[in-house]
C-alpha cells in the first residue's frame, strides 16, 4: 500500500524514479555563464526547506540566525525569512527528501519542502556592482553573513551574501528564465563599461 500520510515518513535515500528531472532553466543540466569578472551558475543540487516555529513547540536544537542573517546550523544553512521562520539549505541534498530530514531534526516545527519551489543562482565576482543595479537595498545591509528577501525586476528573491565576492540568489522557480535573463542583461551591461 503506497498511500500514506507524508508528514510522518523519513526517507534520507535518493528518490527512486525512472523519470528524468529538469533544471529550473529548462535543461537537464544546469546553466552557467562567465561575463567579464562575473560568474553566474544555476545550482539545482541545493535542497531547500522552510522551517517555522510553533507556539508551544520547543526551539530546534540549532542556533538559528537573527533577522537579516544566515548561519551554518545543525539543520543546514539557515536563512532568516521572517519572524520565527527560516529557510534551510541542504547543499547536495536536492535528490533526497530534505524536508523530511529537517522535520526529523526539528520535531514539533512546521517544515515544508521548498526545493522545487525555488531556483538558486550563484553569482561570483564584484557582486556589489550587481546589487546596486538589481535591488533597492543598502549594500551595508547585505554584507557577508547577511540574508534578505527583496525584489529584482519585480521578481521576489532571497539573497544570501556568502562572501565578499559571492552572492546566492534564490528566485521563484517559475520565473527562473526571466530572473536569469535580467541578471545576464545586468552583467552584460556592467561588463561593457
Amino acid at each position: 500500500m503506497s498511500l500514506r500520510p507524508i508528514s510522518s515518513t523519513l526517507r534520507e535515500s535518493a528518490f527512486v524514479t525512472d523519470l528524468t528531472p529538469t533544471c529550473a532553466l529548462g535543461a537537464t543540466t544546469p546553466r552557467s555563464l562567465r561575463l567579464g569578472a562575473f560568474g553566474l551558475t544555476e545550482c539545482p543540487e541545493v535542497a531547500l526547506a522552510s522551517l517555522a516555529l510553533r507556539r508551544d513547540a520547543p526551539r530546534p536544537d540549532a542556533t538559528l540566525p537573527e533577522a537579516g542573517f544566515w548561519a551554518e546550523t545543525a539543520l543546514g544553512t539557515a536563512l532568516w525569512t521572517g519572524p520565527d521562520q527560516w529557510m534551510i539549505e541542504g547543499p547536495g541534498l536536492a535528490d533526497t527528501d530534505f524536508a523530511a530530514q529537517v522535520a526529523h531534526r526539528a520535531p514539533g516545527c512546521s517544515v515544508t519542502d521548498q526545493t522545487d519551489g525555488w531556483v538558486l543562482f550563484d553569482l561570483s565576482g564584484p557582486v556589489e556592482r550587481v546589487l546596486e543595479r538589481a535591488v533597492n537595498l543598502d549594500p551595508a545591509r547585505l554584507a557577508p553573513g547577511q540574508a534578505l528577501r527583496s525584489v529584482i525586476d519585480h521578481m521576489p528573491v532571497l539573497l544570501v551574501r556568502r562572501a565578499p565576492d559571492r552572492l546566492g540568489i534564490w528566485g521563484m522557480r517559475s520565473s527562473a528564465e526571466s530572473l536569469w535573463h535580467a541578471l545576464e542583461r545586468m552583467l552584460a551591461h556592467l561588463s561593457a563599461r
Binding site: 500500500m1 503506497s2 498511500l3 523519470l19
Partner: peptide, 28 residues
Amino acid sequence: TDGADLSNAAFPFMACANLTVCGGLRAR
C-alpha cells in the same frame, strides 16, 4: 502510480493522498 488502489472504494471522489509514482517518486 506504484501499485496504489485507485478504485472508487479506496479512493473516492474528493479523496487525497500522498503516494509514489514512476518507481518511487513522491507525489500527491
